[in-house]
């Protein structure tokens, strides 16, 4: 399941190599940090073509980075977060510690950076996650990628987005994730 070694076209690491710049210098051109849930539920094979949500999310994120080279940074999280400059979210398959992921991503909360959380469900602690999100100065948008029929997770993510003035959209079981994310980024209406 792990694709940690794959370097996606247009990812920060790819652009860093292409331009012979350090990762930190490449990040100057970045606009958005995508925080991707890779907890156990993302392994559910109910997405496009019977693939797991994680697998489809991986494909959609690869497509996004190809479309917006050097503009997106990927952080994956489950129990712990991880920066994935190669553009492929690391699959963890454990719990959903969104609060810890947000605290981790806070180091990138500077002017000119926005955040998009992609998740299919409720976090380990909704209160801790909302508290962590409240400390952000940048907007946090969310893409709910769980099934439409299970509103609890979606409603929580909507609250999270609203708290920072962000937007919440749904990409049922990860399908059309790239399109929905582009919509959030304002590159597609």
């Amino acid at each position: 399941m792990s694709n940690s070694l794959t370097i996606v076209n247009g990812s920060l690491l790819d652009m860093s190599a292409q331009n012979r710049k350090s990762l930190a210098e490449t990040f100057i051109g970045c606009d958005c940090v995508i925080i991707v849930d890779t907890s156990r539920s993302m392994d559910e094979k109910d997405s496009r073509g019977g693939l797991s949500r994680y697998e489809v999310a991986r494909q959609e994120l690869a497509s996004l980075q190809k479309t917006l080279p050097g503009k997106l940074a990927v952080i994956s999280f489950s129990t712990d977060p991880m920066f994935c400059p190669g553009g492929t979210p690391q699959y963890f398959g454990a719990s959903t510690n969104l609060a810890k992921a947000l605290e981790f991503a806070k180091i990138a909360d500077v002017a000119g950076i926005r955040f998009i959380v992609i998740s299919d469900g409720e976090p380990d602690s909704a209160e801790a996650a909302l508290n962590a999100a409240s400390k952000f100065r940048g907007k946090i948008d969310v893409v709910y990628v769980g099934p439409e029929s299970r509103p609890t997770g979606r409603d929580f993510l909507a609250r999270l987005a609203a708290q920072s003035g962000g937007t919440s959209v749904t990409a049922d079981r990860v399908m059309e994730l790239a399109e929905k994310t582009l919509m959030l980024l304002g590159t597609r209406q």
Binding site: S22, L23, A24, E25, T26, F27, I28, C30, A73, M82, F83, P85, F104, I107, A108, D109, V110, A111, G112, I113
Partner: peptide
């Protein structure tokens, strides 16, 4: 150029901090 521009420097610092987690 980067370190004398506040916005670029902030982003660069963020990139350094993320790189340091690897």
């Amino acid at each position: 150029d980067v370190l004398s521009d506040t916005n670029q420097r902030d982003k660069y610092d963020a990139g350094l901090a993320l790189s340091a987690t690897m």
